[in-house]
């Protein structure tokens, strides 16, 4: 069952840390590990030596799908012409409050 020597660094995991209860997990970096348990322990030692976190997620890097720079323009352009999605698009009569 031993993995081949070229795998002896384990796989790459991306580390997400929640700095305080109630806020979102944020990407902190990555670690090498052979399984999730080892990835969590390693992420703790590498990224939270100074109480930087209350919770850690680790995700195998090869499981993350991402948009690419080349496609970014066309991928995001549906939002380009919809200024009416923002409250500042609308005029509010003088003196009217709480809008």
């Amino acid at each position: 069952m031993t993995e081949k020597p070229e795998n002896d660094q384990g796989q790459l995991w991306e580390v997400f840390i929640q700095a305080k209860p109630g806020i979102a997990h944020k990407h902190a970096g990555s670690v090498h590990a052979h399984d999730a348990e080892m990835a969590l322990a390693s992420a703790r030692d590498v990224y939270t030596r100074r109480r930087e976190g209350t919770s850690i997620w680790v995700v195998p890097s090869n499981m993350i799908a991402a948009t690419t720079e080349q496609d970014a323009d066309s991928f995001f352009d549906p939002a380009d012409d919809k200024a009416y999605r923002h409250p500042t698009f609308y005029t509010v009569p003088e003196g009217v409050k709480y809008l």
Partner: peptide, 12 residues
């Protein structure tokens, strides 16, 4: 140590 970790993960 690295070999043992890899073997353990493989077994799991």
């Amino acid at each position: 140590v690295r070999e043992a970790a890899a073997a353990y993960a493989g077994k799991q």
